[in-house]
Design a protein around this nucleic acid. Sequence first.
DNA 1: GCAAATGTAACAGTAACAATTACCGTTACC
DNA 2: GGTAACGGTAATTGTTACTGTTACATTTGC
Lengths: 145, 145
Amino acid sequence: MARNCRFAVAVHVSTVLAMNRERPATSDWIASSVNTNAVVVRRILSALSKAGLVKSQRGIAGGSVLAREPEAISLLDLHRAVDELEPPPTHNQTPNAACPVGAHIVPVLIDIISRAEQAKEAELAKISVADVVTQIRARAAVAAE
Amino acid sequence: MARNCRFAVAVHVSTVLAMNRERPATSDWIASSVNTNAVVVRRILSALSKAGLVKSQRGIAGGSVLAREPEAISLLDLHRAVDELEPPPTHNQTPNAACPVGAHIVPVLIDIISRAEQAKEAELAKISVADVVTQIRARAAVAAE
DNA sequence: GCAAATGTAACAGTAACAATTACCGTTACC
DNA sequence: GGTAACGGTAATTGTTACTGTTACATTTGC
């Protein structure tokens, strides 16, 4: 299966937009940086637009721009925008209720997995698109030496 | 696709083993609690066995038992045993190196995703199989009122 | 030997995903 | 008004990961 790279593409797209704020970027142009199809980029942009993170303009001379300052967009915002909330991955079949474990484990598991997922999200919330731009610029500067 | 429920099954299996330590549990019996096929359970048990978390015995009167005290098995142990370490989900195609973002974003993304994943694992490390047993027993006691 | 158990390979069915094609709606410019 | 350059989206395809299942070899105790 093609791996889920929506979050990675969302970060990439947002970073490109953050580093090119003087004019709207076209999906074709962004796609050439990501090295994928323009429709894939437009799907991501569509999700980001619905979340209010970018603004897109149709028509000639159209394109997309960030809707907020890069400092005000966290990677958690991006994650939530492109990976819709899915239920915690527990049993596919409901367990045997006649067994004490089967009868009660699902809510316990949901609680545990949710807590772990929140820890992950808290980490993503600490990082902004501006931080990513800073890191990219630092690496580019090192590479240019 | 059938969702990945290996971690959930691993927790379920380990909890059943922790609550029935007087005799080895057969995969058939565990499967009836999980409500799945015995082979699915044996696949999980095989992974747990390779990680040294359970011991299985072939032949008549065989079955599986925990290899350690339930207090000494964390959910992170289970997670690592059944969900082999996969690379962080970044781009499928390598991005365009001619673009500064494309040239440097992958290691930045890997760093970010790894850190977020570590936060999640740290949360799982806090919980032991014995804790799950305690929670199951508490819920069973409430349900019995 | 036989019965009961694990271990594992092989296969089918299913679902998720990226990538792609095609087409529609929108907008600026001539 | 026509046209070209855009975004938006539905539909399709190919691929992959996963569970669930069958089948069979292996092991073990009686």
